[in-house]
Simulated assay, not measured.
Amino acid sequence: MHEMAICESIRAILEEEAARQGFARVDRVCLEIGRLAGVEVEALKFGFDVVMRGSLAESARLDILKTEARAWCVPCGRSVAIAQRYDPCPVCGSHQLQVTGGEEMRIKELEVS
């Protein structure tokens, strides 16, 4: 389950930022995850609780914001929302789409003390 590795990376980032910015505790972590990022949200939530035990984020709340997937359609030249990879363009029906958004995952906000 790669979600555990993601949580371990989040913990490392939190520890680095705590050392750099001088905070001792993380109360909330807000992640922004694109619909095409390939992350199972429930597994990520479970992994977050497990990996954060004994850390500065042990009791932190995890909020997840899902961002829509976007693609640029080559034939009609429009930026469109898509539900998943290989969907046709909702405007012209073409399958010549180039994904432009929805693959990212980032820490959007932290609440610390």
Rank of each mutant, 00 (worst) to 15 (best):
Q21P: 02
C30S: 12
K108Y: 09
R25Y: 01
H2N: 05
E32S: 15
I33P: 08
I10T: 01
R11K: 15
V112K: 04
V51S: 05
E17C: 12
Q84P: 00
R61A: 01
A43V: 08
A24L: 12
R85M: 14
R106K: 13
R78M: 07
A18V: 09
A69E: 01
C7H: 01
E16T: 14
H95A: 01
Q21H: 07
D87E: 15
C73D: 09
L31V: 13
Q96D: 15
V39F: 03
P90L: 14
M1D: 02
T67M: 10
L97Q: 03
Q21C: 11
E109S: 04
A43T: 13
Q84L: 08
A5M: 03
R78K: 13
K45M: 07
V80D: 05
S59A: 09
S9Y: 00
E3I: 06
V39W: 07
G77R: 13
V51A: 01
V99H: 09
R53I: 11
A18W: 00
V74L: 05
A69R: 03
G102T: 11
D49L: 11
C76D: 05
S55P: 11
R53E: 10
E58W: 04
E111H: 00
G54D: 13
C89M: 13
C89N: 10
A24M: 03
R85I: 15
V74C: 00
L14E: 02
V39R: 07
S9I: 08
I82M: 11
V91Y: 11
M52N: 05
G54L: 10
V50T: 07
E17K: 12
R35Y: 10
A57N: 01
G102W: 09
K45I: 14
I82E: 08
H2K: 03
V112L: 15
E103M: 01
V80S: 12
C76L: 09
M52A: 09
S59Y: 03
F48D: 02
T67D: 02
P88H: 08
V112Q: 01
V112G: 04
L14R: 14
V26M: 04
C76E: 07
M4D: 07
R53P: 04
A57R: 00
R11Y: 01
V112W: 03
V26D: 00
E68D: 10
C30W: 12
V80K: 13
R78F: 02
I107S: 08
A5H: 04
L44D: 01
Q96R: 15
S94K: 12
I10P: 02
F48K: 03
L62M: 03
S94V: 06
M1W: 02
R78T: 02
I82F: 11
Q98S: 15
